[in-house]
């Protein structure tokens, strides 16, 4: 092996890497928030008394969960403009990622709703709590506790999945890698470093989420 590794060639691009990482975080947080909203609506839709809404919600969830994100991204970025709907790269990334996360969040919420036994609501009501009080004091805590771990790992998966949007030119962290490579020709160093910086972020978030879980659910504050 006659290759001299030269990671120092990347030093002048520290700012670009930080910028890219910030945009990756921004994309992840924004799409997670939109995805949670979509997921909430769809999860409710899957239990709707109207058959049409139930079917539509199921089709959405299955279609998004059984096709690759990359193809969804191409449909949004390259396909929709033929119908006159145009997005910039970053906007298309947000649209595709949000729709994608929405489908997974919907399934997580549905499992969470199903995990709470009907008798919990009934016992709350029989103690004389109003519907709102039952929801607030009986259901909510259990529901959040049930969905939290799955949503936390979904966020980490999302953070990793954002790397895919570099392929349509959204300027997040992985896109910076291609940019720096084109300037330095240090392909391996660039991709190894960028890939590892995702590891730093995912480990940090896993630690953070575990800490929140511990603070909120294990060491339950007196109230």
């Amino acid at each position: 092996m006659n290759y001299n590794f030269k990671f120092s060639a990347l030093l002048p691009y520290t700012d670009d890497i930080v910028q890219g990482a910030l945009l990756t975080l921004y994309l992840s947080v924004v799409t997670m928030c939109i995805g949670l909203m979509i997921g909430g609506v769809v999860a409710v839709g899957r239990n709707s008394p109207v058959a049409g809404i139930r079917v539509a919600a199921r089709v959405y969830v299955e279609a998004l969960r059984n096709t690759p994100l990359l193809v969804q991204l191409f449909i949004v970025f390259f396909g929709l403009p033929t119908l006159g709907i145009r997005f910039g790269a970053n906007a298309a990334a947000i649209v595709a990622l949000s729709l994608n996360v929405g489908a997974y969040a919907a399934e997580i919420f549905r499992a969470g709703i199903e995990s709470i036994h009907r008798s919990q609501v009934e016992s709350g009501r029989s103690l004389g709590l109003t519907a709102y009080q039952t929801f607030r004091h009986v259901v909510l805590f259990q529901a959040v506790k049930a969905v939290y771990p799955a949503l936390a790992s979904q966020f980490v998966l999302l953070l990793l999945a954002t790397s895919v949007v570099s392929s349509i030119g959204a300027t997040e962290l992985f896109h910076e890698a291609a940019f720096i490579e084109s300037r330095t020709f240090r392909s391996f160093e660039v991709y190894a470093l960028i890939t590892l910086s995702y590891l730093v972020m995912t480990l940090a978030f896993r630690g953070l989420f575990a800490g929140i879980y511990w603070a909120a659910f294990v060491r339950r504050p007196a109230r």
């Binding site: 980490v156 990793l160 999945a161 790397s163 895919v164 570099s166 992985f174 890698a177 392909s187 391996f188 991709y191 190894a192 960028i194 890939t195 590892l196 995702y198 590891l199 995912t202 480990l203 896993r206």
Partner: peptide, 14 residues
């Protein structure tokens, strides 16, 4: 903990 895309590129060049 790392994106598959990153693994692909790193390996492709490594």
């Amino acid at each position: 903990g790392t994106p598959l895309l990153g693994q692909l590129f790193a390996l492709f060049f490594a």
